[in-house]
Design a protein around this nucleic acid. Sequence first.
DNA 1: GGGCGGCGTCAAGAACGCGTCAACATCGAG
DNA 2: CTCGATGTTGACGCGTTCTTGACGCCGCCC
Lengths: 225, 225
Amino acid sequence: MTRILVVDDEPQIVRALRINLRARKYDVDTAPDGASALYAAARQHPDLVVLDLGLPDMDGTEVIRGLRGWTVIPIIVLSGRADSRDKVDALDAGADDYITKPFGIDELLARIRAVTRRGQAAAEGGSTIAIGDHTVDLGTRSITRDGADVRLSPTEWRLLEYLLRHPGKLLSQRALLHDVWGPQYLTESNYLRQYMARLRRKLEPDPTHPRHLLTEPGMGYRFRP
Amino acid sequence: MTRILVVDDEPQIVRALRINLRARKYDVDTAPDGASALYAAARQHPDLVVLDLGLPDMDGTEVIRGLRGWTVIPIIVLSGRADSRDKVDALDAGADDYITKPFGIDELLARIRAVTRRGQAAAEGGSTIAIGDHTVDLGTRSITRDGADVRLSPTEWRLLEYLLRHPGKLLSQRALLHDVWGPQYLTESNYLRQYMARLRRKLEPDPTHPRHLLTEPGMGYRFRP
DNA sequence: GGGCGGCGTCAAGAACGCGTCAACATCGAG
DNA sequence: CTCGATGTTGACGCGTTCTTGACGCCGCCC
């Protein structure tokens, strides 16, 4: 879950944000001033900071600089002043986005989505799937087994990807042949036997007794996570 | 140098942006409508797009989606409407930032700096990358191997940079050709073989058994840190 | 129990992708 | 103009992958 740190000294705004963000399944921490914000950030490692510039104890850009000294997590600035100077200062200090009060909650949510989406894309892009003692990463198209790489041919990859994208589901031979080889190969069950065997040799601990790449006689195949 | 594509149908705005951005040492391309914007982006590979939502030929969010289909470069949206709905739509379509007209040029510049800084931080992290016994610095475009410099041609640099900016990820031949040579070279796999060989001769300890610039037969290439 | 279809396995030729070499074109500097 | 560096093409050989056929095993049904 995404953890958001809200920094603002006005209780009613903090309350409104907390309610709205929690409703969207975000995890929310709050801090009323700059010092406690820096402390909370170091302690809780939020995934994103929503920061009001008008804090009682220190200037908002100081908080930004304090965070940027050790982390690159996104910072979205709230401010009551639409003054261009403030925006420039905050963004140059390291803020990722700047919203002027009064703002719509849906705009804030959209900007949160934009900022976190970017972070996730940079971090990985694809989740990783465990199959036996192998780790399959569909994003980078790589498979590792205790450090060593396992190489797959293009056809092997297409077949494995189709299986992994429908975990637990029974996939008919026709469906597999259609999506991996194409509509004119619907009867070539030879290929399927051939390449399922290859995948098992490369991925199953005991290829003759598969535990994840299962055969459903007369029907098709199934990937069991 | 950072290359910026400005998309707007109002000549005076385009002119003002061009002058101001050029003064800040940005490289500026322009496009008056959505179709030519998509064409120019595919052709010139800008590092950032400044996009006006009110285009004559197509909706701004359509342009965003068209770009997001193949690239992750930052997109900053300009709009005359402060309507919250428009902001949400644009950001959810894939925009990185949203500025309402009228805006101050210094605010735009600050947001450009914020967005490009983020991209660089996400891409490099430490700016210097080790590959074998060589040290590659993407910031200064230099490579050293125990004191001695290694020289690369412009095309070799573009190819190496694209590989290094996606460490561990499988990069298809199409993607590499598109981003290094351009969209009209998608089938010229000759170039790829030629220049991968050059990079390996210059960077790999044993070019015939590459340890970092790997080939995935039938699929593409991969940089292993 | 015998026939039958589905499945796993092996083997071998065909097709394809890739690395490499060599030659030519282009372009800017001296 | 000459020269060197860089980009552009074509061709060849080798290894991998794809394709195809055949065989044996097993469970199911008649």
